[in-house]
Amino acid sequence: MSDPALAAPRTWRSPTAEIRPVRALLIGIAAVFIGVFLVFPLVAVFIEALRNGVGAYFGALGDADTQHAIWLTLMVAAIAVPANLVFGIAAAWAISKYEFRGKAFLITLIDLPFSVSPVIAGLIYVIMFGSHGYFGPWLNDHNIQIIFAVPGIVLATIFVTFPFVARELIPLMDEQGTQEEEAAISLGASGWQTFRRVTLPNVKWALMYGVLLCNARAMGEFGAVAVVSGHIRGLTNTMPLHIEILYNDYQWVAAFTVASLLALLALVTLVVKSALEWRFGHELTGGPR
């Protein structure tokens, strides 16, 4: 109740605040909107998953194909996220610490995967590596399988999560400027030392933020992976694909059980993210994502 508008006598109110009914109305609208569109679906996932009790919930997790799907999803994320992390750092360094022409265009290119339909992301790899694609015959001759196998899933996942880390870092590093790095260099530090001792501590929370979102999206991607997966049970099914399969197998509880794992992941992501924001808010720019 630190806001003076609430504590002050009724006749006075802050010139930069709305009257109480308006506030209540706005908060109400926001709460209902978020409730219907965001909270309902989340709650529905857990209710469906626990419909037949906790026993059925854990029983569903014991299934071999389900466990493989979980393992595959973790592995794909374990490859895709670090790859995009390294790229994000490199791109942010090049873009924010130097001045060169065509920067805005480069940023647009980095953003591009955001607005490319996931289906198209899958399609481009089919066109490249499919049997009738550009490199298909060569890969076939050398017995290398890319689409309908793990590498294709990894590639598609990297594509859709491509900009997450870079987009988080670029505005922040841009804002921080180059003085600190220049000072470190002039004092004799090497480039790597400068990055590790000066830049990294400045951006570590934003970096983590980007990694979290990147990870959540990597584990949850459906459209792009569906096109390149081949849907082989126990081999190329990721969790989101497995959810669809279970759903179509009349195993609704099992489907929502796996879904609830991903929803839990989403919740953990949100909690960690909020904790970061709360603790280190001043070190994060809330730039557009």
Binding site: M75, I79, P82, A83, I144, Q145, I146, A149, V150, P151, V154
Partner: peptide
């Protein structure tokens, strides 16, 4: 990493 994943799958 990508290559080893490929081999692992094979």
């Amino acid at each position: 990493v990508i290559l080893s994943a490929l081999v692992a799958a094979g």
